[in-house]
Structures are given as structure tokens and as C-alpha cells.
């Protein structure tokens, strides 16, 4: 008895001012939503950690893949959307391939990434999020993704530019860019695909804009 009390006290002292997380107080709303939208049977997970063991970048994640699955069951939505996990994940599909219960872990994490991108939460790994964003911007402009344009657009994003300037890698990146150009690996001009109109229309629809 005494043990339990001091343990609880210990926890409270560990994170002053923070309420302890309760298990089971959030119902199944978030779980049901993700299972429905991502088409993944998250309830089947029995926490064997095989996904995490298979993951090549789990040590760069704050919430490990198997924990992410558990968090969904508990409805801890904000923690997941604020995590580095959803941006560090490479979509390498190791977790999904090796889960003994066919929980599609990669698709689940991808779905969380989608949710985070459409939320007000600032991504914990901003540079990774900005890279994906820039890719789609370039795609929408020409229907194809020209690497030269992609890299230019990416490095010119204020956040990225400042980060590169601060950690002194800007020069290195520029030199690499020049070498790539010299080797003919970058194409400066890409003709626009006729697809742009179609793609922009699809974008508007995907965003729920009518007309």
C-alpha cells in the first residue's frame, strides 16, 4: 500500500504541474475514427513490438511504432500529432510487413501524418514536413517534379534557409548543387504537363472546394 502511494507521489513530482494521463477516459472515438479512415485493424495489436524492432529509424522517434498504435487505442491524439515519429517515418513498410496481426502500421502512421498536416499543430520535424509540402507545390505548378526546382524551392523556404545558414551547411549544399548541374543530373527546364489543369481541379475537390 505504502509503495503504491509513494510511487504515485513520485510520478506527480516527476512532472510538476502536469496531470497524470488517465487510461481509458477517452473512449474509443479516436480509435474508431482511425480504424475506419485508414482501414486498419488497430485493435488487433497485442504489443509484441515486432514493428518497432523492424523499424530502421525507431531510435530517432519519440513515440515508437508499437507505442503509436497503443496511443491510438487510448485516444492520445495530440501526443501523436505532435510527435517526431510521424515525420521521421520513412514509409519503408517494414513494420507492416512483419506485424504478426496484419496491423498496417505504416499506413496508420501515414494517416496520422495526414491528420497532422491538416491540423494547427506545428510539426515537430519541421524541415521534413516542409520538404513534402514543397514537393507538392512544385508538382502542382508543372504536373511533374523537376529536382532542380524542388531543391531551389526547398532551400529558399525561410525556415530551411535560416536553418542551413545557422548550421553552416548552405555552402555545402550549393557546391553539391553545382556538381549535380555540371554532371548533367539536374534539368533546368521541364515543359509543363498538360495535366496541371486536371491536377489543380482534383486538388480543389480533395480539399472540399466546390465549383
Amino acid at each position: 500500500m505504502q509503495n503504491t502511494v509513494s510511487h504515485q507521489k513520485g510520478m506527480a513530482e516527476h512532472e510538476p504541474g502536469k496531470k497524470r494521463k488517465l487510461i481509458g477516459d477517452r473512449g474509443n472515438y479516436f480509435l474508431d475514427r482511425i480504424q475506419g479512415e485508414a482501414g486498419v485493424n488497430i485493435s488487433a495489436c497485442f504489443q509484441c513490438e515486432r514493428c518497432t524492432n523492424a523499424c530502421p529509424v525507431s531510435h530517432f522517434m519519440d513515440i515508437k511504432p508499437h507505442q503509436a498504435i497503443r496511443y491510438i487505442q487510448l485516444g492520445w491524439r495530440e501526443d501523436l500529432l505532435k510527435s517526431s515519429t510521424i515525420w521521421v517515418c520513412l514509409s519503408c513498410e517494414m513494420c507492416t510487413t512483419y506485424c504478426p496481426n496484419e496491423v498496417d502500421v505504416a499506413e496508420t502512421i501515414n494517416h496520422l501524418r495526414n491528420m497532422a498536416a491538416h491540423s494547427s499543430i506545428t510539426p515537430k520535424e519541421k524541415s521534413l514536413a516542409v520538404f513534402h509540402q514543397t514537393f507538392l507545390e512544385v508538382l502542382r505548378k508543372s504536373g511533374k517534379v523537376n529536382e532542380f526546382r524542388l531543391m531551389n524551392a526547398y532551400y529558399l523556404k525561410p525556415d530551411i534557409f535560416q536553418e542551413k545558414l545557422k548550421n553552416g551547411t548552405l555552402k555545402e549544399e550549393l557546391l553539391l548543387g553545382l556538381t549535380l548541374l555540371r554532371k548533367g543530373r539536374l534539368k533546368i527546364f521541364t515543359p509543363r504537363s498538360r495535366a496541371i489543369k486536371d491536377i489543380q481541379k482534383a486538388y480543389h475537390q480533395a480539399r472540399g472546394e466546390i465549383g
Binding site: S91, V145, A202
Partner: peptide, 15 residues
Amino acid sequence: SCCGATAAHSLSEAM
């Protein structure tokens, strides 16, 4: 046109 690669998958499942 581009397949969307990982970026589209990451940010917009529909796309």
C-alpha cells in the same frame, strides 16, 4: 504526370 511519390501519400491520401 508525377505519381505524387511519398509527399502526396504523406500529406493528402486522396491525391
